[in-house]
Design a protein around this nucleic acid. Sequence first.
DNA 1: TGCCTCACG
DNA 2: GACGTACGTGAGGCAT
Length: 990
Amino acid sequence: MTAPTTDRTDIVDPNDHVVLIDGSAYIFRAYHALPPLTRSSDKLPVGAVAGFCNMLWKLVRAQGFSPAPTHLAVVFDKSEQTFRKDIYPLYKAQRPDLPEDLIPQFPLIREATRAFDLACVEQAGFEADDIMATYAEQAKKRGARVTIISSDKDLMQLVDDNVRMYDPMKDKTIGAEEVFEKFGVTPDKVIDVQSLAGDSVDNVPGVPGIGIKTAAQLLADYGDLDTLLARAGEIKQTKRRENLIEFADQARLSRELVTLKRDVPVEVPLDEIAVVEPEGKRLVAFLKAMEFTTLTRRVGEAYEIEIAAIEPDERLKAGAPASLAFAEAAGLGPQAEEGGEAGAAAGFTTGGGDDPRLSPTRRAVARVEEAGKTPVDRSRYETVTSLARLQAWVGKAFETGFIAIDTETNSLDAMQAELVGFSLALAPNEACYVPLQHVGAGDGLFSEGMIPGQIPLAEALATIKPLLEDPAVLKIGQNLKYDWLILARHGIEIAPYDDTMLLSYVLDAGASPHGMDPLSMRWLNHTPIKYEEVAGKGKGAVTFDRVAIEKAVEYAAEDADVTLRLWRVLKARLVAERKSAVYETLERPLVTVLANMERRGILIDRQMLSRLSGDFAQGMARLEAEIGEMAGESFNPGSPKQLGDILFGKMQIPGGRKTPTGAWSTGADVLEELAEQGHELPRRILDWRQLQKLKSTYADALPTYVNPHSGRVHTSFALAATTTGRLSSSEPNLQNIPVRTEEGRKIRKAFVAAPGHKLVSADYSQIELRLLAEIADTPSLRQAFQDGLDIHAMTASEMFGVPIAGMPSEVRRRAKAINFGIIYGISAFGLANQLSIPREEAGAYIKRYFERFPGIRAYMDETRTFAREHGYVETLFGRRCHYPDIAAKNPSIRAFNERAAINARLQGSAADIIRRAMVRMDAALSRAKLDARMLLQVHDELIFEVPDDQIAATIPVIAKVMEEAPLPALALKVPLKVDARAAANWDEAH
DNA sequence: TGCCTCACG
DNA sequence: GACGTACGTGAGGCAT
């Protein structure tokens, strides 16, 4: 031991008290034991951090904890891979995933430790327990006292006269006596008990049939584990004797697993964890950033610091461009971190974008700067036409650990498209195209047919399948759902994956588009070849299988190249801007969920639709005759222009309005008004339009979407289409199937379940209003939902002083319109229009509403201010919706953006919730051994196809997943309610 | 291609 | 007092 060079008492001696905090375990315990506190300005979960800081403060101020610690370290688990995993791969293999609101608290607790000027220790390959055991051993040898702050029973083997444990949640000290209570043996025999009894939590096997009680009894009889195993044959109980003999080796393995290592080559010597007085100002800066007001004040008082004069820690405060906290939590993830390092090796420019010492923000900035520096050089792309070359690319991808992929097909419809080729990229300009099914155009000499020299499809697929499904290689795509579907139809399920389109969506929804070309131009300053340039456009367009291979290579390989480059930039931004949780929980997992829904499709009754089409045509013909007669001439009732001329020109009906472009307005609201005034023609037009819509958009169009192979209709869900986080559905749009009129519902009846099945529809009741009550913190509304009241009637009763019982329907109708108006960012004009009342009256309603529910006005004002200041709003789950025009000079544009922003928090939070439910649904159903299949999502409704005999069992599972979807990230005060029904068709299930 | 209209939440 | 309005979508048909 080296002699001290100063008179400081760093060197541990018998008067010292070494305190070791089990950081990771503390977070878990605190998370479950303490209320789910969040930082008020941005809802960052900080409950465990707060508890931790309070504890540290007590420790360093020696309040109620004696003797005062002279040495203190907070010890963390560093990596999953430990020597225990090497000897027993199942060790701790079934740890559940971390609750997501816990994840960001790990790095914050490290930050807190540093803010207190305390040692923060972690070491690769060793668990925190081993490091603590080593410190404890070293301190003990020097005669010091040791306290381990943890309640983990695995540490109890360390307890002796000099070493005690302290459970911070129960405020209880654990000595030899308490260990005996728990294990029935003295601390020195704890290892033997654990070796026999095993541990289901950590997956320590032990000996079957032996628990703690039995183990303690056996050890009392035989002394220690080795003696017991040696004399196992003497045991009377047959089963126990057999097990002890048969599983003796398993018990010895268990002993290796549970025995803590006391000789870890610690990188931070014990002497260096001496407690020093924290630097008050830095500590206050940290606590202020965390918004722990009480503790900030206490610390300020203790150090006599003027806390108002201290700025919160820039990196950690709410809204900071990059908090180290989230960056570390999100990591670039083990996956992406490897990507970063391998990226440098694979040829990315390294000017800081890969420097782990830089903050995530600096890294992201560096990557954006580096992105444009390697110009795209299409001449370097390779055309892969031999299996050997393809194998070489695959081999390299295994080394690199990530690869960009793009498939080329002959159709935009993923359910019909034939695979024509695929491209890969490993580094800038290091990309290739693998043509598989290009055909010649037929030049007169040869009839058209497959171009020779292409790798046979089956061989190529067999070669890339292991790569695309390898859990250690990240596959990167742009709109990967498409490629996933194409390859899934060939038996390949890509995993794991990243999607640059979704990265962009999480970061920039509402601010900029997420297609590859705009992303490339924005982030890489590069314009990729347009699809039309290789395939032609309009009448001359050909499908990709007819594009000459030389041209296809440049286009396709560039797509993979660009995708890879975009990933570098956007993934770094994701971390720097702390949106990893949104991406990982609400976006990425939905890719396969939606792909599977699309793949399943839904059955429609084509006969029924055909019959309806005929009925609608008859009705229209009848109406057309009447319309012609009334107008005195025959004209096209489908032409708004001709109709306007007839109504307001020829017939001179007063009350016409003009559209913004100066044409006569003939919208339903205008015609409805005229009809109420007694004009017959507008009524007929309205009826005709309804039939026209139902016929053309639904009855005639839907059957054309039936897939010839599956016999079902496969919509396409867009994940990155809306500003608010909602999905959209197209080709066909199955999110706008008629329901509001009797005629329309006939269309819905044509959506049916397969034989032996029923359709189950489960929808959230009033979810946006519930979220309003939650977000705007309106106790009366919240209470009404908790009590299960009719929310519109309750609103009416509050506003107009009318009792709920016997309320006139008109009163309730008005309150309902107001409630919806609020969700849409109410205006007097809009409400007046909706209710057909004067604008003054509508204004008075709104005023009254805000008087009765002041919290809602505050919510709207806050949202407006926040949006104006930041250019975006956030949902309850952190999804960002951008409104770049929110500060427009034009008041109507500004007001429009404000209303949209107010609505977005509600609509977006609801969208997040159903996304969470969808992500969990399949696993919940299969856990319950149910065969229900999710088919459609309609914003607040999920539609399933369920075998007849499983309906009763399935409905509660679906409802539970949906109702509990916000957990564990958020525990809403307002309950969510789900209504679910089963029927043979969608209309009756709804 | 833009505009209008209308289907849905 | 401007400005012209309820929020979010996609599809079909007309007119250009």
